[in-house]
Design a protein around this nucleic acid. Sequence first.
DNA 1: CCCCAGGCCGCGC
DNA 2: GCGCGGCATGGG
Length: 227
Amino acid sequence: MRSSKSELLKVYEALLESYGKQNWWPVDEEYHRKAGSDPREEIVIGAILTQNTSWKNVEKALENLKRENLLSFEGVLKTPLEKLQELVRPSGYYRQKARRLKEVAKALSPIDKVRTIPREELLKVKGIGKETADAVLLYAGNRLFFVIDAYTKRIVSRVWGMEGSYEELRKWFEANLPKDLEVYKEFHALLDEHAKRFCKKTPVCEGCPVRNICIFAQKIKYNYQGI
DNA sequence: CCCCAGGCCGCGC
DNA sequence: GCGCGGCATGGG
């Protein structure tokens, strides 16, 4: 691992500078005030629904749950499986996800468990893998676990030429970032945004805010110059 | 028609 | 421990 702490922070600051604060995770505070439910439960539910699925589709499912006043662990648990499937259908994999919602609602009730449950425990829940677990722990539990996703892996691979397993990359980020919830939350969100705007499957290096630090972008530049 | 999206599980190796 | 097929809707 060649890059230094300052290099990682430099990327964070460059992305923050060009994209601004992302304010993940989006939650409908107003809904929960009126319903008397805990907004952290929406984060957990959203984390399941967004697995390999665009957020747009997740929003439709969340709207369906809200309309029926069921966007909570209690709502998920008391709704018959078949009805729950229909409500979350727009988010895809709806049979799996309906089951997983009930599993996680059971495992994390009462919701304050997100502040204490060991990561290993959470990973035992059917439907919760590493990324979902870390997203839940960070965004709902306010705990210092860095979330790695496909976008993060792609960006790390391009910028630093570094490959690694989920755990390797997570530990690398955690070792080289300040122990600051705000940084963890925003950085993950910024990497996501960056992957959508520039570091796409087919990269767009023209105008990229970190092209001066990025190994891949530098290589492209040299190729253009014929060096 | 194709590919992709804020993954995970169960399996074989 | 890693690679693979299956899971499914909606948008480009």
